[in-house]
Structure formats: C-alpha cells, structure tokens
Amino acid sequence: MGLFTYETEIVTAIPPAKMFQAFVLDGDKLIPKIVPKAFKSVEFIEGDGGPGSIKKITFGDGSRFNYVKHKVEAVDKDNFTYCYSVIEGDALMNTLEKITYETKLEPSPDGGSICKNISKYYTIGDIEIKEEEIKAGKEKALGLFKAIEAYLLANPDAY
C-alpha cells in the first residue's frame, strides 16, 4: 500500500464556529440543498454522525461518480476538527483503498477562519495517483467550501 498526502488551506470570512456548524455538523442537510446538482442524497447507514458512523452520499446526475461511503473517524466540536474516510464507492476508482480527510478550522486575524485540510490517499499496491486526479478532487472540494461560504454570506442569520 502506498500513501500520497497533500495539504491545503482555505481562508474565509466566516468565523470557525459558524463554518463548522454549516460545513460539518449540518453539512449533510445543507449541501444537497445548496448544490442539488452535485449531491442527490446523504443517508446514514450506521450511527448518528459521531465517530464510527457511516453515511452514503449519492451524487447528482452530472457527476462522474455514483456514490461514496464515508466513515466518520473523529468530530471535535470544541476545537473545530473533523476527520472522515472515504471507504467505498466508485470515486476510489479501483486504485485506492481509502482516502482520509482531516479538517481543522482556526480563527483568522480578521474574524473569519482558516480551513486547514490534510488529505491522505491510500493506494492499492504500488499504483501511483495522477496529479490531475488530485487536482480535480481538490477543485471540487474548494467549490463546495465556497458554495457554503456564499450561502452563509447571503444568509447571515442561517447559523
């Protein structure tokens, strides 16, 4: 098994507590609402959202993938950290055992937040991941984050 890791940072005007609530804690309800073409549904298969929970995300008709299953590894509401793994689905492309995402929201000096993310791709055997595949996934994640940010900016009383 190989491991490929990359880190990203996204700056937003939204404070950490508000962004964590919308993006992580309420994301399963909010994301299909604000990006309906990308996400068809999110359903819990096991658990209630805490560590060990497994949820199935079905993508919209325009997506190149059908579904993924996420396993929640850790949720820390006080420190605004969230960790989950993609453990099943066609997004693993028969080349990945799993993908683990570790997200932390920290306060920024201007009252907003900095979202720090570490993505770990666990490959099957000696398979190498193409940089363009990582870039495409990174751009989709950024687009999703920015969609939530735009929603919160347009709806300041939402959370």
Rank of each mutant, 00 (worst) to 15 (best):
F80Q: 00
V75Q: 01
A74G: 11
M93Q: 15
D90S: 14
L92P: 10
G62N: 03
T95G: 13
V75C: 03
H70I: 09
G62P: 06
V86Y: 15
N79Q: 04
N79T: 04
T81I: 07
A91W: 14
S85M: 11
T81G: 03
N66P: 13
K55L: 08
K55G: 09
D76K: 01
E88G: 04
L96Y: 10
K77F: 11
E88M: 05
H70T: 12
H70M: 08
A74I: 09
A74Q: 12
T81Q: 09
E88R: 03
D90K: 13
S63L: 01
F65T: 04
V68I: 10
C83E: 11
F59R: 00
V72K: 08
S53M: 05
G62H: 03
F65E: 02
S85E: 12
R64P: 13
T81C: 02
G60K: 09
T58E: 10
V68W: 12
G60L: 06
H70W: 09
H70N: 11
K56M: 03
Y67V: 12
A74T: 09
K56D: 04
Y82N: 11
C83M: 11
V86I: 15
S85G: 11
L96T: 10
V75K: 04
K69V: 03
N94T: 13
D61K: 14
T58L: 12
S63Q: 03
C83K: 12
D61I: 13
A74E: 08
D61S: 12
K77Y: 08
R64C: 13
G62S: 04
V86W: 13
V86P: 14
P51V: 00
F59D: 00
R64T: 15
L96A: 07
D78A: 06
Y84A: 02
A91M: 14
T95E: 12
A91P: 14
E73G: 09
L92E: 08
K55Y: 03
D76I: 01
G52R: 00
I87H: 02
E88N: 06
V75E: 03
G62R: 05
E88P: 05
P51F: 00
G60I: 07
K56A: 06
A74W: 14
C83R: 14
T95L: 12
F65L: 01
D61T: 15
K55F: 10
K71Y: 07
D78I: 07
V72I: 11
G89V: 00
C83L: 14
T58N: 10
H70G: 11
G62M: 06
G60C: 09
A91Q: 14
I57L: 03
R64F: 15
G52F: 00
I54N: 03
P51W: 01
F80Y: 01
I57C: 02
R64D: 15
K77V: 11
K55C: 06
A91D: 13
T81K: 07
A74D: 08
L96Q: 09
I54V: 06
D78T: 05
K71N: 07
Y84M: 08
D90L: 13
I57P: 05
V68G: 08
H70K: 08
L92W: 11
E88Y: 06
C83P: 15
S53D: 10
S53L: 05
N94D: 12
S63T: 02
F59Q: 00
T95C: 15
G52H: 05
N94C: 15
L96F: 10
H70R: 10
